[in-house]
Amino acid sequence: MSDLLLKVEDLEVHFRSSSSIVKAVNGVSFTLNKKETLGIVGESGSGKSVTATALLRLIPNPPGNITGGMMLFEGTDLLSLSDKDMRSVRGNEISMIFQDPMTSLNPVFKVGDQIMESIRAHRKVSKKEAKAAAVDMLKLVGIPEAEKRINMYPHEFSGGMRQRVMVAIALACKPKLLIADEPTTALDVTVQAQILDLMRHLQDTIDTSIIMITHDLGVVWEICDKVIVMYAGNTVESGSVKTIYENPLHPYTWGLLDSQITSEISNEEGLSAIPGSPPDLREEMPGCHFADRCPYAQEICFSAKPEMVEVEEGHSVSCHFQTKNTRLQRKERVYHG
């Protein structure tokens, strides 16, 4: 038995509107081993959430559709499962937590019921056993007075506490994969660190793999083993965190790194130092998706699409000028003009 848990290949997700097709995810590939943490980074709109949602096959249809690719989870293509089999994967083998804990819990049901529901959807247990398990989960995620808290409603919890509840719901059935879609973005900095600590700690406790979606490279350096960088529905760079930390190669990744430094200096979240905005995903683009904003772009970038190339072991980049034999010279703080 190999250590491979998930292998995604050429995933494509398109959204159809009356007049156009938005190619939100356009050939994303990655692999994830057991107990590993994969980071997906990219600016907002780059297709991270859509990729995550596609993994659970929860893309709203219409207008969305998974139009191509494979998602092999423990060797089975999730796309080949019946709806019923897919439901038994959701929340059981693969769970997800979302960005905004203020809106991701149902306001009209007690917190305990929302955890128990997750357990009872997948395990044949009595109400009493489910309740005991829910209390245990709340304790596990560090909520004090769990026995009492279980009967409270979400609005009686702070944002950080609600995200802990979401973690409890997601991990209640001890899934093999936890997808966290910007789980700390909506939280205060101190609370962010607590939630990340909690996730790291629980990953060891229940041996789960994590896909951590974030626009914050700091989070990636801190908790991920591997990372893929997404731009406009494409993977532009992927590799181990160590490689990419030490030797980032794609101009877009450089831009993200620069913008991270800027946001640390100015203490402003999400401030992008890359001028311009992502391309319109409805339009057919013959060249590199990043060409319009890339300080290194040459003529070929607008006419030919660069392929993902493994430029060193375990490190792939899609840029015409970053190959096995050639390197671009990274210019100092080029995004600031």
């Binding site: 949602t53 659970l56 929860l58 439901r87 038994s88 994967v89 959701r90 929340g91 059981n92 769970s95 997800m96 979302f98 905004d100 809106t103 991701s104 819990l105 149902n106 306001p107 529901e117 997750s118 959807a121 997948h122 979401m166 719901i169």
Partner: peptide, 14 residues
């Protein structure tokens, strides 16, 4: 269209 409906679906409820 609310997030908690997505949460409910992601739990594997029908």
């Amino acid at each position: 269209s609310q997030d908690y409906i997505k949460t409910a679906r992601s739990k594997g409820l029908n």
